[in-house]
């Protein structure tokens, strides 16, 4: 359990394309980070060796500062930035015919979801989506700032009064996923959670025709 990755709210147990690419990003960064950390620690440890003092300040400045201090991080960071930008680009909500559109409105301490495909129907604290199809959530708030977050499906996006933000989520498989409001909102914040139910094709049709409770 202690070192496990699974969990209903785990970022590293992804169940959708967005969360998966971010989880991969995390593992890549973790490995890279451990390597860099190891390198720095080895360099520090080696300085304790017994050896003749080095008097060539200009030479060591070139090595330590120009090569290790500037060239090395610039290279690593540029690569990482490019990787991050590519992923960020992929996660953007782009136009596509089969996108489902949902409006999510937060208040202290409940979420109301309404569906463009099913005018007039709203659900509270339970969001219904079809599995395997991209869903765009238009997020806003009527009182304070909240944040819409389903860790196993995608990153979070804030619900801000007067603004509407759009987040793309998608679940690979039908199932129930836990969602959280992830911006501190006062005394009811602990229990401010919701559920996402991803339906298979028949389940979704049933929901759209109003058969699902």
């Amino acid at each position: 359990m202690l070192v496990g990755c699974d969990g209903a709210l785990s970022i590293v147990d992804p169940a959708g394309p967005a969360a998966r690419s971010i989880a991969l990003l995390w593992w890549v960064m973790l490995v890279g980070g451990v390597l860099i950390f190891g390198l720095v620690m080895v360099l520090i440890a080696l300085s304790f060796r017994k050896r003749a003092a080095c008097e060539d300040d200009a030479g060591s400045a070139r090595l330590w500062i120009v090569k290790l201090g500037i060239a090395f991080p610039v290279t690593v960071l540029l690569a990482l930035l490019a990787y991050g930008l590519v992923i960020g680009e992929q996660l953007l909500p782009r136009e596509s015919g089969e996108t489902v559109i949902v409006r999510a409105e937060a208040r202290q301490w409940a979420w109301n979801f309404s569906y463009d495909d099913l005018p007039g129907r709203t659900t509270q604290d339970v969001l219904h989506i079809p599995a395997g199809r991209p869903v765009d959530i238009s997020i806003t708030s009527t009182d304070v700032i909240h944040s819409f977050w389903v860790p196993r499906l995608a990153g979070k996006l804030d619900a801000i009064p007067g603004h509407v933000n759009t987040l793309r989520i998608e679940a690979d498989r039908p199932g129930t996923y836990q969602g959280l409001s992830a911006e501190f909102s006062g005394s009811g914040y602990d229990r401010f959670t919701f559920q996402v139910i991803a339906h298979d094709e028949t389940g979704w049709q049933a929901f759209l025709t109003g058969e699902t409770e």
Binding site: L43, F48, A53, C54, S60, L63, W64, G69, I70, G88
Partner: peptide
């Protein structure tokens, strides 16, 4: 802002490596 935030690691790196270089130069 993401680019700017990652690049701020460069001047920090300069300091860290200057300090490690100082340790190499002397006898800690």
């Amino acid at each position: 802002f993401s680019a700017a935030s990652t690049l701020v690691a460069v001047p920090t790196g300069v300091q860290i490596f200057a300090w490690i270089g100082t340790m190499w130069k002397g006898r800690p």
